[in-house]
Amino acid sequence: MSLTQMLKGIIDGCLLAIIQNGEVYGYELAEKLEGFGFDSFSEGTIYPLLLRMQKEELVTSTLKKSTAGPKRKYYSLTPKGEIELEKFIVRWNTLQTNVNRVLPSKSDIEGDDMNE
């Protein structure tokens, strides 16, 4: 399975979490994602996701003037988006715990190698 496939579904929650920290515009949002380690992610991928989240009323947007070029569209979280983020965090914690239980830890693998 490719990283892109694994990221599907997770990236929505990450976008909501970044937007919750303060309103951001598209380019800034992509830069922040990259800063968190999502560097193999094509930046343009966020726009259809943001559009869908706007339609689902999870985020709202406002156009603001920029000194560096065209008007920027800033995204902020709606109350519905806050609830969705909370749900995502719960789901993610459960998923993470379960996956970690299934996968052998690094020390287990090293221990097996030593025994062989």
Binding site: G26, Y27, A30, E43, G44, Y47, P48, L50, L51, A68, G69, P70, K71, R72, K73
Partner: peptide, 14 residues
């Protein structure tokens, strides 16, 4: 139009 505008501004800045 929404996608193209967002991407156009992004490409400009990039």
């Amino acid at each position: 139009n929404e996608i193209i505008n967002g991407l156009e501004n992004h490409l400009y800045e990039a």
